[in-house]
């Protein structure tokens, strides 16, 4: 099994596209860096405590006014008012008053998790179908290792690749952030649920972001992997997986406004971060435990499908 994984890794490693993806991810991090560095206020421009408190007070007044005038976007204004009041009371300066630090930089870079997910999906979608495309599947399957083992070695490789890319994103953000912005004082994130405001250290919030992001793309990679085992065509596998990824969450949350059943859909559950932030789950009755259970069931279904398809099929390159 180790040898099979070594093989898959070797094949992946020597593919140019693997490196292109890593390079694009790095370019993304550098892009964010340039943006953050050019927009960063210098130390003497940072507002003093009295200044930022005054700014927040001002904001609160404006928000109250907006709330009275229009009545639209009620939730948004209520949340902002509550958070700002909480910051003033507890002496918790907002991001704009502490300046950029490695933590805030890494937090911004979680946006790149989307890009990373797409890359992982592409690798997962092609790792089986490319063998069919090149015809090498025939050589791969006429050796003693069972088809299940070959399938599993490919899956493990996809996960390793995902972990590697995540480490790259995490590492590059950390190193570049530390170099350019220093460690600074981590600011505090606020979470607003049902009118209550809670605080969470930024480092913890960051860890939750990256962890839930990982769960998200592991699920998507597994889906793409199963699709790859079923369709056996590179283009089909990539197109379907990426399409699902791009529209899946949107369609699900739209449906969730009107119905209850979308809570059983994959994309209502892939973003576990929803339980840790102000946004909350798309359907109210959902809990973290519920989502984890649903995800495990989906995972089993995807893997079962992949194994079943890969085992039973006639291996022909044309058909």
């Amino acid at each position: 099994m180790i040898r099979l994984i070594q093989n898959e890794w070797m094949k992946l490693f020597w593919r140019i596209s693997t490196w292109v993806m890593a390079a694009i991810l790095l370019v993304g991090v550098v892009g964010v860096l340039i943006y953050a560095a050019t927009n960063q206020p210098s130390a003497d421009e940072l507002p003093s405590e009295a200044q930022w408190k005054a700014q927040l007070e001002q904001q609160i007044v404006e928000d109250r006014q907006a709330l009275e005038d229009s009545g639209a976007a009620e939730g948004f204004y209520e949340q902002r008012i509550a958070e700002n009041e909480y910051r003033i009371q507890n002496d918790l300066p907002p991001q704009s008053a502490t300046g950029e630090s490695v933590w805030s930089f890494m937090s911004t870079n979680t946006a790149l998790l989307d890009l990373l997910s797409i890359f992982v999906i592409i690798v997962a979608a092609t790792i089986i179908s490319s063998e069919f495309k090149s015809g090498t599947i025939k050589l791969l399957l006429v050796r003693p290792p069972s088809r299940i083992k070959i399938l599993m070695s490919k899956y493990v490789t996809v996960i390793l690749y995902a972990v590697g890319m995540l480490a790259l994103l995490f590492g590059a953000s950390f190193v570049l952030g530390a170099l350019f912005f220093g460690f600074g004082e981590p600011s505090t994130e606020l979470i607003y649920t049902d009118g209550e405001v809670e605080q969470r250290p930024q480092v913890l919030a960051l860890a939750i972001d990256y962890l839930t992001g990982s769960v998200n793309f592991v699920m998507l990679a597994t889906l793409a992997f199963a699709i790859s085992a079923i369709f056996r065509s590179e283009a089909m596998a990539i197109a379907i997986s990426v399409l699902l990824y791009v529209v899946g969450a949107g369609v699900t949350s739209t449906l969730a406004i009107a119905y209850n059943w979308p809570k059983y859909l994959l994309f209502a559950n892939t973003n576990l971060n929803q339980y840790f932030t102000s946004s909350g789950p798309p359907v109210e009755s959902m809990t973290l435990g519920f989502s984890v259970t649903v995800l495990i069931v989906y995972w089993l279904i995807f893997m079962g499908f992949a194994v079943w398809m890969f085992k039973k099929r006639e291996i022909s390159v044309t058909g």
């Binding site: 040898r3 070594q6 593919r15 050589l139 050796r143 003693p144």
Partner: peptide, 15 residues
């Protein structure tokens, strides 16, 4: 995308 030698290493590992 692999060299001749790497191809053989690949199939040797399978055995």
């Amino acid at each position: 995308h692999l060299s001749a030698e790497k191809n053989l290493i690949h199939f040797a590992r399978m055995n």
